[in-house]
Computed example of a mutant assay.
Amino acid sequence: MVVKALSVVRRGAPEAQTLYEETEDSVRRREQAAELRKAGAMGVTTDGRPTKKQRRQIHQLHGSFD
């Protein structure tokens, strides 16, 4: 990615896109990161809050006893 200019004020995405130019390498890395996020999100399932046993295991793993 090549930065063309900096903005002093935070603006929207369309205006921000005029401030930089993506290289082929940055496009490839961005697409790979998106694929990894997508693949990781597909494997994550949650059943809500952890049970009391799971909380104990989490606290034991992190070393906190609260």
Rank of each mutant, 00 (worst) to 15 (best):
M1S: 15
V2Y: 11
V2C: 09
A5Q: 10
S7Q: 09
S7V: 09
V9K: 08
V9L: 09
V9P: 01
R10V: 12
R11G: 11
R11M: 03
G12L: 12
G12A: 10
G12Y: 05
A13R: 06
E15G: 02
A16P: 00
Q17N: 05
T18Q: 14
T18S: 08
T18M: 08
Y20F: 15
E21D: 07
E21A: 11
T23L: 05
E24F: 05
E24K: 09
S26I: 01
S26F: 10
V27H: 03
V27S: 06
V27L: 03
R29D: 00
R29P: 00
Q32C: 00
A34K: 07
E35A: 10
L36K: 12
R37P: 01
R37C: 13
K38L: 13
K38C: 04
K38D: 15
A39N: 07
A39Q: 13
A39M: 12
G40S: 04
G40P: 00
M42S: 07
G43W: 04
V44Q: 07
T45H: 00
T45E: 00
P50C: 08
T51K: 03
K52N: 09
K52G: 13
K53P: 00
K53W: 10
Q54I: 01
Q54M: 09
R56S: 08
Q57F: 08
I58M: 10
I58T: 11
L61V: 11
L61S: 15
L61P: 02
H62V: 14
S64N: 03
F65I: 05
D66L: 14
